[in-house]
Amino acid sequence: MSADGLVAVTTHASEPDAAVAEIARAIAGVPLAGGLVFCSHRFERTELAAALDKLMPGIPLFGCTSAGELTTRGYDSDSLVFVGFPADAFHLELLPFTDLDNFDPEAARKQVRHFAGSCRNVAALALGEGLSHVALFLVDGLSHREELLTMTAQEALGEIELIGGSSGDGLAFKETGIFFDGHFQRDAAVIGLLSSSRQMQAFSANHYRPGGERMVITEADAETRTAFEINAVPAAEEYLRVVGQPSQTLDAAFFASHPLMVRTGGEYHVRSIQSANADGSLTFYCAIDRGVVLTVGEPVDRVAAMRELFDQTEGKVGQIDHIIAFDCVLNRIDAERRQVAHEVSALYTEKGVIGFNTYGEQFRTAHVNQTISGLAIGR
């Protein structure tokens, strides 16, 4: 914890009570407006939720399970990250959503508009005028509802920017958890509207450029995010042909190193592949459908690009307290494969980056993949 800064804690204690005890010692009586928690999927969730609820009863706490954590070590694992927002400079309120399979966009828009207006008024009374506002958004990374929720929420938030990530469970793809109201829940999402007298700047960037060859999804199931054919050929076979490695084994490391990209809104975004299936189809982390035009992304110098990104962000908020980051798990896998993970971790440590590895990132109206997205908070 820096003087007068955020309460930022990392613990590698394996037992929930011991981990939360470390958080309690770091808080050391600092009045908090709320807190944010990112935890390894290895924690026993019921015990961890109970310990957190006991630590700060009545204080807004939210978070999620991860596919890896970002701590003072940079890339980390089997850890718990806690970010506490001091009450003298922050105001935090939560709006959860459950039963995402039956999500009602129109009802949600009304809910979010009312919530945002109320939060701004209460924050102004507590902290004064001229505040910065941002919506921190966490959503079940296995829900397949990220696109709809992100677009709905950002439309209702108006000028308040939305930034967040999809929860993970390592790379098991079985069950992730969103934490709010003292419990970890699946098929859920939560908006934490953070207001502050400090400067806050949201950002998002990927570190790939589009390749030269184009391909078209010719058969797909949008509901399951599965492409069956690309260029009228079994999807996995055509993907390997375009990459130029037709005999390569398809796994997470290969997908991370050869991401597919799509052009939307005049910019290229990654549409990461989650898995290759026995029938030759490919399942994606993000929305895809028939007719989508794709190209294979080619890497740029990630460390140099991120340093430039962080420096530009610092220029907008002044001295950075911390960066709360949502970093795609495929970025981490690719960094390890290219043997730059140590350099990335060193940069994250230098710049005060804390957060988690995601199954996808949300920025404004978009659900994206293989980005580093985040919120820089000034001192």
Rank of each mutant, 00 (worst) to 15 (best):
243 V>F: 10
258 H>S: 05
264 T>Q: 15
248 Q>W: 01
243 V>Y: 04
266 G>L: 07
273 I>P: 03
248 Q>R: 14
227 A>I: 05
268 Y>H: 15
241 R>C: 01
245 Q>S: 13
247 S>C: 03
235 A>G: 04
236 A>I: 05
222 A>D: 12
217 I>W: 00
226 T>I: 15
250 L>V: 01
244 G>I: 04
217 I>M: 06
276 A>T: 01
257 S>A: 14
219 E>S: 10
273 I>R: 07
257 S>F: 10
252 A>F: 12
277 N>H: 13
266 G>H: 07
223 E>T: 14
225 R>E: 08
265 G>S: 12
218 T>A: 03
222 A>E: 12
249 T>P: 07
267 E>V: 15
254 F>Y: 11
232 A>Q: 12
276 A>E: 05
242 V>A: 01
275 S>T: 15
230 I>Q: 01
237 E>W: 00
234 P>R: 09
242 V>R: 08
220 A>V: 04
243 V>C: 13
246 P>E: 04
260 L>H: 06
222 A>R: 11
262 V>S: 15
239 Y>M: 03
269 H>T: 13
255 F>Y: 02
266 G>K: 07
270 V>G: 10
216 V>I: 06
227 A>Y: 04
275 S>A: 14
253 A>Y: 09
233 V>E: 10
216 V>K: 08
218 T>S: 04
250 L>H: 02
219 E>N: 09
233 V>I: 12
230 I>P: 02
253 A>N: 10
219 E>H: 11
233 V>M: 10
220 A>R: 03
239 Y>T: 03
250 L>T: 00
250 L>I: 02
264 T>K: 14
276 A>F: 05
261 M>L: 14
275 S>Y: 08
243 V>R: 05
254 F>T: 04
269 H>D: 09
261 M>F: 11
256 A>V: 09
245 Q>I: 00
241 R>L: 00
257 S>N: 10
254 F>Q: 02
246 P>G: 04
262 V>N: 14
223 E>N: 11
221 D>Y: 09
242 V>W: 06
236 A>Q: 02
249 T>A: 12
232 A>Y: 08
271 R>Q: 10
269 H>L: 14
233 V>N: 05
240 L>I: 03
267 E>S: 13
229 E>V: 02
270 V>L: 12
232 A>I: 02
265 G>K: 11
223 E>L: 15
272 S>Y: 06
260 L>I: 13
252 A>K: 05
262 V>M: 15
216 V>E: 03
240 L>E: 02
